[in-house]
């Protein structure tokens, strides 16, 4: 598929499309933890890192098939997501955020000293198995399952926890279980995104998954509108393209990026799609139906 597309699309644009796809998967994972369930996670890159390294080592050392490397990467990340979810039993808000930051930093330092991971030099020569076709397929699957989850019984209880924990408990929601579940699913997608990233970039280093990467993913979720799938997708698209568009301003790129974040928050404090309600759209549609 990629070879076919390459005839029509400039490889540079194809590359941006692939990165957008990977970021959508990563951001949708974080959206479940932070956007939907309201548990501020500032260490999503840690899960990405675990997925990337696990899958890369499996590919390089054990010549594992691509799908197996992806799955293992995602599962290892999910396991750590499960572990990180457990402190949420006791911690709230910014204390939890600190634990997630600490976790991601520990993961980074671990890989900096991890012999099979190439230490600070990282790993190179990872087979470039991630193609546009595969990313597109996975993005569609992830969006589909995500949408199913969020409008299910479990998804509703996640939103309920974000809105009011005490009331959610009074409705019989086992808060602890749902929070751990949200972390685990978020981490699974983080690991999947990381594994795709590793098999696209050819080359990974610990600092690819540093604090700034976590923050960029968080930006995508908040910018688009917390808890909204279309919002998160839009956030991922904009924040992947923005740095590319800002290349014309060369070294001033990040200066504009920073200013852009401030301005967006001042003028759209609830995120780009935070005020656009699917309910409103549905209501309008329902009314029309009634009228007709």
């Amino acid at each position: 598929m990629d070879a076919f597309l390459m005839q029509y699309i400039d490889p540079y644009y194809l590359r941006i499309l692939v990165l957008i796809g990977i970021n959508i998967i990563l951001a949708l994972g974080l959206n479940i933890t932070t956007g939907v369930t309201g548990q501020l996670s500032m260490g999503h890159a840690g899960f990405m890192s675990l997925g990337a390294y696990t899958s890369a080592i499996l590919s390089l050392q054990f010549a594992a098939p691509f799908w197996a490397a992806l799955l293992c990467g995602a599962l290892v990340a999910a396991f750590f997501g499960f572990l990180i979810g457990i402190p949420t039993l006791r911690l709230e808000g910014d204390y939890l955020a600190m634990v997630t930051i600490g976790f991601a930093e520990i993961v980074r330092v671990f890989f900096l000293n991890f012999e099979p991971g190439g230490k600070a030099v990282g790993l190179s020569g990872i087979p470039q198995n991630t193609t546009f076709g595969i990313v597109l397929l996975l993005v569609i699957i992830v969006i589909f399952f995500n949408a199913r989850l969020l409008k299910s019984r479990l998804g509703r209880s996640m939103y309920a926890i974000r809105e009011n924990e005490i009331a959610a408990e009074a409705c019989g929601v086992n808060i602890t279980r749902i929070k751990v579940l949200a972390f685990t699913i978020g981490a699974f997608l983080g690991g999947l995104g990381g594994a795709l990233y590793a098999h696209y970039m050819f080359f990974i280093r610990p600092q690819d998954f540093a604090f700034m990467q976590s923050i960029e993913l968080l930006n995508m979720v908040i910018l688009g509108g917390m808890g909204s799938i279309p919002g998160t997708i839009l956030g991922a698209i904009i924040l992947t393209i923005a740095p590319e568009l800002l290349r014309i301003v060369a070294e001033y790129r990040l200066l504009f990026y920073g200013a852009l974040l401030v301005l967006l928050m001042i003028f759209r404090p609830n995120g780009l799609l935070g005020d656009v309600r699917i309910y409103d759209l549905r209501k309008r549609w329902m009314n029309k139906e009634v009228g007709a």
Binding site: L254, L261, V262
Partner: peptide
């Protein structure tokens, strides 16, 4: 706005 938007704004200032 929510506290999270203020947080993103703070991150923007930091990058800037």
């Amino acid at each position: 706005s929510s506290r999270l938007s203020a947080l993103i704004s703070a991150i923007g200032v930091s990058i800037f």
